[in-house]
Amino acid sequence: MARLDAPAVVTANCLLAGHVLYLSETQEWVTQLSAAHRFDCLEAAKVMAAKVNDPSRVIGVELVGVSTSPGETVARHYREAIRANGPGAYVFAPPIGEGDVSVQ
């Protein structure tokens, strides 16, 4: 896994249902990455992650890096983009030569 840099968000999976969760600014678990609180300080994020790690509600609490650009919070690593958007939802630019199968 890539080195973790700020900004970061706190994420986990829901114990009962398994779905992906993010910690909001009001310290509630929400399902949208866009609603997650961005921590600019990794230390503060770690402290918060430890605080909200309630094994009766969530599982696998961890920090993930997000983009630094203003506006919507976007995952920095493709794994997190897939976690945030679901299977099949993560699509790259079409490959060079798409539609031009130059075999033969």
Partner: peptide, 12 residues
């Protein structure tokens, strides 16, 4: 796990 239940990326 020995009952086939995993936790994956998005769900069990």
């Amino acid at each position: 796990l020995m009952n086939g239940v995993y936790l994956q990326l998005h769900a069990y």
